[in-house]
Computed example of a mutant assay.
Amino acid sequence: MTLEILTADSLAPMRHGFFTRKGGASSGVFEGLNCGTGSSDQTEIVAINRARVADAMGVAQDHLAGVHQIHSADVVVVNGPQLEKPRADALVTSTPGIALSVLSADCQPVLFADEKAGVIGAAHAGWKGAQAGVLEATVDAMCTLGATRGAIHAVIGPSISQRAYEVGPEFFETFLDEDPENTRFFAGGDGDRMHFDLPSYGLSRLRSAGIASAEWTRHCTYFDPDRFFSYRRSVHTKDPDYGRLIAAIAL
């Protein structure tokens, strides 16, 4: 089966893609293109999947850069092949031949590009990282490499949608404490439960950062099991583990 790669016109002509689970070598609960080295999938199979991604991105396998994601606002600058993955949640580069990648399974994978300046970025933005400022930090880091804030385009890839993201009152209070206007990202649920709109929250923060454009591909990871892995769905179905999707952009 061939790879399925979702793209966005606003990031063209940069090579980029939000890869679905189709076209991979994994099996079982990881069936398809599981690129999560932290999963319990077979190491050699994950390596095969990642090699397919590198090939699709037109880079050597050791030039497919990533990070050990920790739900932070930390950003690293990539200048060449990585010997190990640093602990962070975003990457930026202005070095040709490098592909930046992030993993997700409900959290937001976000790709950034300033084509004129030749600067790209990638961020993993769950609610913690987004609230901590990882999206704005990625934009700032790109600007230190020569990007212009008003020329940066950002695209949020497949993420959990609001109707699938049920949260409790403590979660709501966390966002209310940050800004009372954050109530607009919540909708009522059963009892004291609410539904959080993670992509809309991400878009709001990106647009407030003053970049050229921000959009979401509008793909929900939870409700499309044939195409996407989902942590929350795996919990509901009591699976022992779950696959990780990959998103990448290259110079």
Rank of each mutant, 00 (worst) to 15 (best):
I5K: 08
T7G: 09
A8D: 05
D9I: 04
S10D: 08
M14S: 13
G17I: 02
F19T: 09
R21P: 10
A25M: 05
S26T: 04
S27F: 09
V29H: 12
F30E: 10
S39R: 11
Q42E: 15
I45W: 06
I45T: 14
A47T: 15
V53E: 01
A54F: 11
D55F: 06
A56Q: 08
G58Q: 09
G58Y: 06
V59P: 10
V59I: 12
A60N: 10
A60G: 12
G66Y: 00
H68N: 11
Q69K: 04
I70K: 00
H71A: 13
A73R: 15
V75T: 03
V75R: 00
V75L: 00
G80K: 09
G80E: 08
P81T: 00
R87T: 08
D89I: 01
L91I: 00
T95V: 12
P96F: 13
I98M: 04
A99K: 02
A99F: 03
L103C: 05
S104W: 04
C107H: 10
L111C: 03
A113E: 06
D114C: 07
E115M: 11
E115L: 14
V119L: 02
G126N: 08
G126P: 03
G129P: 05
G133R: 10
V134M: 05
V134H: 03
D140R: 01
C143Q: 12
G146T: 08
G150E: 13
I152Y: 07
A154N: 01
G157H: 11
I160L: 10
S161Q: 10
Q162M: 14
P169A: 10
F172L: 12
E173G: 06
E178Y: 12
N182H: 15
T183V: 14
A187S: 12
A187E: 12
G189D: 09
G189P: 09
M194N: 04
M194Q: 11
H195I: 05
F196S: 06
D197N: 15
D197M: 08
S200M: 14
S204F: 13
I211V: 03
A212G: 03
A212M: 05
T217F: 05
R218K: 15
R218S: 11
H219W: 14
T221H: 08
Y222V: 14
D224G: 01
P225K: 01
S230H: 11
Y231Q: 10
R232I: 13
H236A: 14
D241K: 02
L245Q: 09
A248G: 07
A248W: 00
